Amino acid sequence: MDTDAVIAAIAEPSRRRILDALRERDGQSIGELTEALAPLGRHAVLKHVGVLEAAGLIVSRKQGRVRRCHLNAVPIVELAQRWIDDFGARASAGLLALKSELERGNDR
C-alpha cells in the first residue's frame, strides 16, 4: 500500500464524497456519481475516480458502455491499523459509542 497516495486521495473533499456515495450504494456508474456530486462535471469526477483508483480505494469495471465503481476499504483499514493499536482501538470505540449516544440524545 502506498500510504502517501491513500492520504492524498482522501484529503480532497470531493473524493471523500465519492467514497461516501459508494459506501451508501456500491457499484455506481460514473454518470450516477456525477449526479451525486453535482455541480462537479463528468470530467472532474473521472479525474477524482482516477486518483482514487491509483490509491487502491476504488476498483472500476466496464459493463458494456457503463463503467461501474466499487469501494475497496482495505487501504483505509490498513492505514487505521498502522496507527491504532488494540488498546487505542478499544478506547476509541467506547468514545465513539458515547458520542453517538449523546448526539442521539440531542435529537430527541
Rank of each mutant, 00 (worst) to 15 (best):
L33N: 05
L57Q: 04
I76V: 09
P75Q: 10
R23I: 08
R67W: 07
P39D: 12
I30R: 13
V77A: 09
P13M: 03
L46M: 13
T3W: 10
I18T: 00
E24I: 10
L22M: 04
A8G: 00
G64H: 12
R68A: 08
N106R: 08
D26R: 14
A38I: 15
F87C: 05
A54M: 15
L71F: 09
H43T: 13
V49H: 14
S100I: 00
F87Q: 07
Q81S: 05
T34L: 11
V74E: 07
I18F: 11
L57F: 11
P75D: 03
L79R: 03
C69H: 05
K62R: 14
D85P: 05
V74H: 08
M1E: 01
L95T: 03
C69P: 02
I84K: 04
I30N: 10
I18H: 07
K62G: 04
L57D: 02
H43Y: 14
A8N: 10
L95Q: 07
E12L: 10
L96E: 01
D107Q: 01
R23L: 12
D20K: 11
R82F: 13
A36H: 14
A55T: 05
G94S: 05
H48A: 14
P39R: 15
S100D: 05
A89C: 06
R104L: 02
K62C: 07
S29K: 12
A38K: 14
I76M: 09
I10T: 00
G31D: 14
S60R: 15
G64K: 12
R17C: 01
L96Y: 08
L79F: 07
P39A: 15
R61N: 11
N106T: 07
S14V: 04
A11K: 08
A55W: 15
T34Q: 11
S29L: 09
S92Y: 12
V77N: 00
A73T: 14
D26K: 15
H70V: 01
G64W: 06
L79V: 04
A9S: 00
A93C: 04
G50S: 13
G27R: 14
E24D: 11
E35Y: 13
E78L: 06
R42W: 15
G27F: 12
A55Q: 07
G27I: 10
D107N: 01
H43A: 12
D4V: 06
L46A: 09
R67N: 08
R68G: 00
R68E: 01
D4S: 03
R90W: 03
E24F: 10
D85Y: 06
H70Q: 11
A80M: 08
P75A: 06
W83A: 00
R17K: 06
T34G: 04
E78M: 05
L22T: 00
L22V: 01
A93E: 05
T34R: 11
L37H: 09
G105L: 10
L46P: 13
A97L: 06
L37K: 13
L22C: 00
R104D: 00
L33K: 11
I7C: 00
K62V: 06
